[in-house]
Design a protein around this nucleic acid. Structure first.
Lengths: 170, 170
DNA sequence: CCTTGACTTAGAGTCGACTCCAAGTTATAG
DNA sequence: CTATAACTTGGAGTCGACTCTAAGTCAAGG
């Protein structure tokens, strides 16, 4: 059988869309494990490593801070998740966060559609995320659970085209 | 008739989850228009302003840079979109971006599920963004043609052995 | 009158996430 | 033998997005 294919940092950067500098930076802050080196000290990456960096790239696009990505990488490559109950719990809560982020995004999409299609929707509230270590949360206690009335955006009022996507989740 | 209700910056911060400092900052960088003031110079916000800030909050949660939010706020309160074709195009491309971001996130969710369920998958590729001209044009009339998988994944907490979501969109 | 609290401003400081730089090593091509 | 290219390192610099500070105004309460 043939030896596993490896890649240089440049190739890895090209494949993942993460710059070489950034890959090194991630290694420096130990977000990525120290890559293996060739005899001359150059880093080498395998498909597995590239997949990992790809995952980072995905998470990055969602605006997740680097520190929050760590738990994802801590999942051993092929271990029984049952052996790491805390980790699993952590990841699971992140999953919830992401699911609600998807809902947020979907609302923005709905908002755009509404604006552009000019249909009358109400109630596109709640991008809530609401989590402890959240994105720069702030001040006293909690955000709002208030039902801020329907956005009466008549903004773009073009005649509706009828027949629209489900649009609403929940 | 009663005068329209107004809010202080503090109330606005509470309702939107954006801190007072940040709201002032957004005004400073002209992401938000200069708020009206009372006689004593204090800012006042109306429901409409709160909705706007709330939209910013949504976008922020998705990791969108402030500069990219400007076009969203540039949509005049009640104008015919046809009058602003460039703006509409801009927003539309943002919509595409967000849709693909949803796909990214869905993949991460799938990834998590896969890991935690301990199933053996490989190939969880493609969180691609940057799909500018490629796919975006079919959107012009159909808001939600892509099967951005329904948020019905309740894997956790519920049994959900049966229907693994498409996992691969596009 | 004095204090408290909610606000105002300009501007300084912080922090996360890069991004760039300089100096050095090794491999290949002319 | 030298030049180019692809890497290495540590560290400095940048930039976006806040976040905080200081100094001041104003209104109400004791």
């Amino acid at each position: 059988m043939m030896a596993e294919q490896t890649f240089t940092i440049k190739q890895t950067a090209e494949q993942t869309g993460i710059s070489e500098d950034t890959i090194r930076y991630y290694e420096k802050i130990a977000l990525l494990p120290r890559a293996d080196r060739k005899d001359n000290g150059h880093r080498i990456y395998r498909q597995e490593d590239i997949n990992t960096i790809w995952l980072l790239s995905c998470l990055k696009k969602t605006g997740m801070p680097l520190e929050e990505m760590r738990p994802f990488l801590a999942i051993p490559a092929d271990a029984d998740p049952g052996e790491y109950p805390e980790l699993v719990e952590h990841i699971r809560s992140h999953r919830e966060k992401i699911v609600s982020q998807i809902a947020s995004l979907q609302q923005v999409v709905d908002f755009i559609d509404m604006k552009l299609e000019g249909e009358r929707y109400y109630h596109y509230r709640d991008c809530s995320d609401e989590s402890q270590d959240g994105v720069s949360e702030d001040m006293t206690g909690e955000p709002n659970p208030k039902p801020v009335s329907p956005l009466e955006m008549s903004y773009f009022s073009v005649s509706a085209k009828t027949g629209k996507s489900p649009a609403s989740l929940r």
